[in-house]
Structures are given as structure tokens and as C-alpha cells.
């Protein structure tokens, strides 16, 4: 009898452990996409205060580089403008709709929290629904895509980073025109992998990769990175292409949220597809 009690006393700890572990697993599994963003919204609204303070203290350190980058971009934009002004009707059709109206508008934003070391990285921006940001909008920087907005509060946006092992986005090889999904493999913060490039495609090292513009999340033809390695994937007829990203996710501070102006219209079109 004594032994039974001793056994139960030992098992009590095991039972407590299993109970608490079960709660932890329940939390993990119930953190599904939607519930998580709802709960997280409240948490991040509280947390973002702290990170805003931190960010305002550290932001000055990188100002010199930011200024140089802005200056460069400004020059490039001036050059482009001059080119367009000199040649009438040279505006690229992709950036403008049929009625001559622009397809995309941009909301400038600053990153207030970011990580690059996890397998599922997220970014918090200082803009929210008050600035017109909504879930499923893309986020870009001057030199590539940053991620996609998953949820917003009034003054904050929660962004799934490109450095997220379960998120794919469509990109295109500029030279050959082949497109495929790009998915981070979780290894380093400046490389990503492009899948499903057909065997017959002549991928070369240092080919440029740009956004495809499918799905209206990102505008087309934004440079993303260059090819640094390409080999045939195991047991398949497709190339697996390793890309060096142009963005340095460790330093990135200023980004733009992409708002596709015909998004609602596109959403009404999607159910029509499903009928076929």
C-alpha cells in the first residue's frame, strides 16, 4: 500500500507536467492564423509602445546610410522622370490601368520591431488602419519585397516577413521569364529559394529575380535578388534556384505598404474562378 502511495506521489508530478504541457500544446495548435492575429493584435498594441521607444532611440544610428539610400533613390527617380518626359507615351502599361489611373499606391512606414533569427519571422510597422493599411497588403522596400500584412490595429501593422518558412510568394526570372514560388528555407537571412523552375529553362548564375505581380499583392518587376546557385531538385524535373536577396533584413528600417487599388474588384472576381 505504501508503495502505491509512493508511486502516486511520483506520478503526481508527471501528471502536473503532462497537464501543463497539454495546455502549452493547446496554445500552439490553437494559435491558428486567425485567432492568433486577433489575440496578437491586443498584445502587440501594448508591446509596440515599448518598441517605439526603443526604436526612436536607436534609429539615429543608421541615419547616414538611410540618407544616402534616399539620395540614390531620388536620383534614380529623377532620371526616370526625365526619361518619361522626353519620350511621350512611354509610360509602362504594367504600372497603370486601362483608364490611365495608377494600379498601386504606396504608404510609407517605419519598422518598429523585426527579427531575422527565427524560422517564422514577423515585422511590426508604425502604420495601421488609420493610415489605410489592411490585411493582405504587400510590403516592399527600395530593393525588394519585405513581406505581407497579416493584421492591423489602428496604428500598427503586423507583417509576415519574407523570412518565414511557411510563406511563398511568386517571383520571376527577369531574363528567361520563368516564374515560380519563392520560399525561405530558414538558413540565412540574406538567401531564399525559388522552386519549380522547369528543367529546360537556362538559369544562369547572377540572373536577376523580380516580382511577378500575380495576385495584386506586389507590383510587378520589383528587383528581389540574384541567382547564386541552381541545381535540379531531387526526384523532380524542376530546378531549385538559390537567390541572394538585395534587402538586408538586419538593417532595413523604411518600407512602403503597397495598396492595390483594384483589390476589392479582384476579390469579387475570385469566386467566379472557383465556379469553373
Amino acid at each position: 500500500m505504501k508503495n502505491v502511495f509512493r508511486l502516486l506521489a511520483g506520478a503526481r508530478i508527471l501528471m502536473l507536467f503532462m497537464l501543463l504541457e497539454a495546455v502549452a500544446f493547446l496554445l500552439i495548435t490553437s494559435s491558428s492564423y486567425y485567432q492568433q492575429s486577433v489575440v496578437m493584435n491586443q498584445l502587440y498594441a501594448a508591446r509596440s509602445f515599448w518598441h517605439k521607444q526603443w526604436n526612436s532611440a536607436t534609429q539615429y544610428v543608421g541615419l547616414k546610410e538611410v540618407n544616402e539610400a534616399l539620395n540614390e533613390e531620388n536620383t534614380a527617380l529623377h532620371n526616370m522622370l526625365a526619361q518619361y518626359q522626353s519620350t511621350p507615351n512611354a509610360l509602362p502599361g504594367t504600372a497603370f490601368g486601362t483608364a490611365g489611373k495608377p494600379l498601386f499606391s504606396y504608404i510609407p512606414a517605419t519598422i518598429i520591431d523585426n527579427s531575422v533569427t527565427k524560422q517564422h519571422n514577423y515585422i511590426v510597422l508604425n502604420v495601421g488602419s488609420a493610415n489605410g493599411v489592411a490585411p493582405d497588403m504587400g510590403v516592399i522596400a527600395d530593393n525588394g519585397i519585405v513581406g505581407v500584412v497579416t493584421s492591423v490595429t489602428e496604428h500598427c501593422a503586423f507583417v509576415k516577413s519574407l523570412l518565414h518558412t511557411n510563406w511563398r510568394c511568386n517571383v520571376r526570372l527577369m531574363r528567361t521569364g520563368d516564374f515560380g514560388p519563392m520560399e525561405w528555407d530558414g538558413i540565412t537571412h540574406n538567401e531564399s529559394v525559388l522552386y519549380d523552375i522547369p528543367e529546360h529553362s537556362s538559369v544562369q548564375i547572377s540572373d536577376t529575380v523580380v516580382t511577378s505581380g500575380f495576385s495584386g499583392i506586389f507590383p510587378p518587376n520589383i528587383p528581389v535578388g540574384v541567382v547564386i546557385d541552381s541545381h535540379q531538385a531531387k526526384r523532380s524535373n524542376f530546378h531549385e534556384v538559390r537567390i541572394r536577396l538585395f534587402i538586408d533584413f538586419k538593417k532595413i528600417q523604411h518600407v512602403r505598404v503597397v495598396s492595390f487599388l483594384y483589390r476589392d474588384e479582384l476579390q469579387t472576381l475570385k469566386p467566379l474562378f472557383d465556379e469553373y
Binding site: V23, A24, L27, I28, S31, K118
Partner: peptide
């Protein structure tokens, strides 16, 4: 978990 922006429950488990 709350501080590190991970899935809630990960570090707990």
C-alpha cells in the same frame, strides 16, 4: 512567448 513574437506556447512547452 509573448515577448519574442513566436507562436504562443512554443517556449512554454
Amino acid at each position: 512567448d509573448i515577448f519574442s513574437m513566436d507562436v504562443i506556447g512554443l517556449h512554454t512547452a
